[in-house]
Amino acid sequence: MKHSIIKKIATACLTALIALPVMAQEDALKDFPGYVDFGALSSVFGEPTVQISVGESLLGLVGSLSASEDPEAAELFKRLNGVRVNVFETDGMADGAIDMVKDVSSSLSSRGWESVVTVNSDDEQVRIFMMIIDGQVEGITVMAVEETEAVFVNVIGSINPEELGKVMENFDIDINGNGDNEAE
């Protein structure tokens, strides 16, 4: 009995300690105007198949290291504060997915995010938002929910959309894992 209580206390403390750096990184990003809290995504879509969170320090290092190979990308990375991606594989449109996208969208609009693209169809919901401050894009948020996949992206930092487009063209990743890239 006594040992089980001690074990529980130790486990709770250890869990809290391990979670601390991750929470600290998320907390640091929360202060930026381009940060978006998507809410409890896993409660609607389950466990993410892809989860990426790259913070400011790593972005800076990647930027510095890729300066010679890709100066445009390096310049972009140096001005970014964070990149967060959550991808969920779904089997049909998840229950509550459309409502969730609408809720987050209205919350973003009320916080000053500008809606750039909205696709509203039964089998596809896409929202692209930009946080623009003094004519400068400070954040981009993408929510794309369809029957097989739900993608949530939040790019935080000073972004030049034209520059972002050029950088995206340079990436050629097979995200489907079958040799053909839909992005191409």
Binding site: I52, V126, I128, V142, V151, V153, F171, I173
Partner: peptide, 14 residues
């Protein structure tokens, strides 16, 4: 990770 992130962005954009 960044390459994957930007590929997803490109994919959604396309």
């Amino acid at each position: 990770d960044l390459a994957v992130a930007f590929t997803y962005l490109d994919k959604v954009g396309l």
